[in-house]
Design a protein around this nucleic acid. Structure first.
Lengths: 196, 196
DNA sequence: GTCTATAATAGGATAGAC
DNA sequence: GTCTATCCTATTATAGAC
């Protein structure tokens, strides 16, 4: 068992909160909604999160950051060659966003005006860390630093944009295609020369 | 004066609504917020929008679609060469999103769970129309249809993703750089060969 | 068209029993 | 830790005067 496995019940709630917040946005989710989704009464929720919804937002932001660290950032810092690591990241990302059907918590929380400043700060940090992790992986394989950062930023942009467009079009193939394309671009593939 | 210029007061409200909804998300904006922002009492708002907030959402979606038609889609269908039209689009888009500081209504509304199905449908149509308009412009200059669509989709993805990432990083230069990069990609520029 | 009430409900949060 | 009951505020929406 892992170092902090004894948090238990609260962690289960946080996973549910994560899903509610990213799908509907922080502001649109009521305590009653959370009560329904978790099967717990309001008082139980306030027992686990004495600070109410802001507390929940912070817990979800921390959870998301840790999850990204474990499933995305740390693997990117591993010893494997970057093409393997990038491919693995795309697979993880695809699962995380359910192939383009599920919104990103980051995008959802960035809009929420009543989310606490601290939670938003944590969410924003995930994006910065994500870009850093990709850039480091590319740099470790010999890509020049500025170019590595440029590509990494473009990669995260492609993923976030693909989530919006794929859901707008109701077409998960668009998401899958965008991930493939972003993967190639990250590894420095030249664009197909299909010019007029 | 244009054909439907006599709507007047309501149109002014819709512009304010557009800004409120895209910045905070439909669900987070209350009638009281709207009353404050417009300077009108609640009853006045219900006079203009008898159906309440859902009515407002539909009006904003229609407004956004018309605005996109006039400022983006129609110009893309003009007679100018595609590089000129794409460059103009990027300039318009940059102004529209305030250089990356203002969220996109599309992304905001896509998350809002209590937005009416009809309003969401209109919002989604904007994305489809946008991709069509860009693809048509490229195809008109000789780019093969499938490639034109591919590039157009990637272009909209880049813009939407750049909005998320730029706001997360608090860095509008990221948005400007992404627009420049997307512009080149739309026109079929080869990626710089900076491989390891 | 806009205002001042006012109603009815939903929301966040707490008290106290078990 | 979880429940029931309750409080207070915010929210949507309407009525009716001007």
């Amino acid at each position: 068992m892992s170092a902090n496995a004894e948090t238990g019940a609260r962690d289960d709630i946080v996973v549910t909160l994560f899903d509610l917040f990213r799908r509907a946005g922080y502001d649109a989710v009521s305590i009653a909604d959370i009560s329904d989704a978790t099967g717990l009464g309001k008082s139980s929720l306030y027992h686990h999160f004495p600070g109410g919804k802001p507390d929940m937002a912070q817990a979800v932001a921390d959870f998301a950051r840790n999850a990204m660290r474990e499933t995305v950032f740390d693997p990117l810092a591993g010893a494997a060659p970057s093409p393997k690591k990038i491919a693995a990241m795309m697979k993880t990302v695809s699962a995380m966003y359910e192939g383009g059907g599920a919104p990103c918590l980051i995008a959802s929380m960035l809009i929420s005006p009543s989310a606490s400043a601290r939670a938003v700060k944590t969410i924003k940090a995930i994006v910065a860390d994500w870009i850093d992790a990709i850039a480091d992986a590319l740099a470790a394989d010999g890509v020049a630093r500025p170019e590595a950062r440029r590509r990494a930023t473009q990669g995260v942009i492609a993923i976030q944009g693909a989530l919006v467009v794929a859901r707008a079009l109701g077409d998960r193939k668009v998401f899958a295609a965008a991930l493939k394309s972003a993967e190639k671009a990250l590894l420095g593939a030249p664009a197909r020369a299909n010019r007029p």
